[in-house]
Design a protein around this nucleic acid. Structure first.
Lengths: 150, 150
DNA sequence: GAACTAGCGTTAGTGTGACTAACGATTGGA
DNA sequence: TCCAATCGTTAGTCACACTAACGCTAGTTC
């Protein structure tokens, strides 16, 4: 099921492809597990952000999670339908909605924290603790490069 | 534009998220450049595979590139429309189509080889040569884990 | 040689994620 | 008071991963 033996040499040599494939496999495992908890990545991103920053507007959530504000609408709908967040108009600025974490949302967050830690451990299983640190370091360097000039 | 300063601590700590983000940024750059050459990732995968393995069926292409055979149909259509491959029935087994690289396809492949090498270099710019090797090594370990039990 | 099974290419459709465009409502500043 | 900007929302595009089903062809078994 992987091309490490059957694929073209050129494809195996492409680091960008390697990166994509590793991410894809990790994402798949993450999404599988999240689905079993009736959640997806964005749900976690929103819940975690609300937990750390308190009630914020959708625009601020969009900034902090990097979810497009157009997509955020559906995410908040889903979370609200599960009573994990509340959406209420901001009295101070009636353009805004204030999104608040509910006790149920906080419980879900803790559940997902655990779940994601487990999946991460599974995905990184082939690496030692030192290698995991190294990987995080290298990936951070890549990600931050783009953070600079934007 | 990245959450390394504005995002929740929990999100920054998630290695699976880090991996996804790095892959996403790299993919975006790759796709941008490929688009300028009127191509996409799958085009390259197919062209490179044909170059290394000669004329093969779509089923074999699907195995070697990990493109689903249902999606491969459109990819071959696109490549054929650009005269980069030819699709002809296999006389030895009339269920099969034999896909062949054309001279034009080979030219495009060389062009994309260069293009992708440049993008890879740009994406990995923050890393030294040794670090790039290390990254490739770690990612390979992750990818091969899944290759095992499938 | 008829029937069955399996492989092949194709069509259609699902779900997720990234991303753009545009609109109505509201706000703050010139 | 008018203007520009911001906010939430709707709608839609594109790429990728993945599933289901169908018609055709090939090879095998009875």
């Amino acid at each position: 099921m992987d091309d490490s033996t059957t694929g073209a040499q050129r494809l195996r040599d492409l680091r960008t492809r390697l990166l994509s494939q590793a991410a894809m496999q990790a994402d798949r495992r993450v999404n599988e597990e999240l689905a079993r908890a009736d959640a997806r990545k964005w749900h976690y991103a929103v819940l975690a952000t609300l937990d750390e920053f308190g009630a914020v507007s959708q625009a601020e959530l969009s900034d902090r999670t990097r979810i497009y504000r157009s997509d955020l609408v559906a995410v908040i709908n889903e979370l609200a339908a599960r009573d994990q967040v509340e959406r209420a108009p901001d009295p101070a600025d009636r353009r805004r909605n204030l999104i608040t974490l509910t006790p149920q949302g906080r419980r879900q967050l803790h559940k997902l924290d655990k779940l994601l830690a487990d999946v991460e451990d599974e995905v990184l299983a082939p690496l030692t603790a030192a290698e995991r640190e190294q990987l995080a370091r290298l990936l951070t360097a890549l990600v931050e490069q783009h953070g600079q000039h934007m």
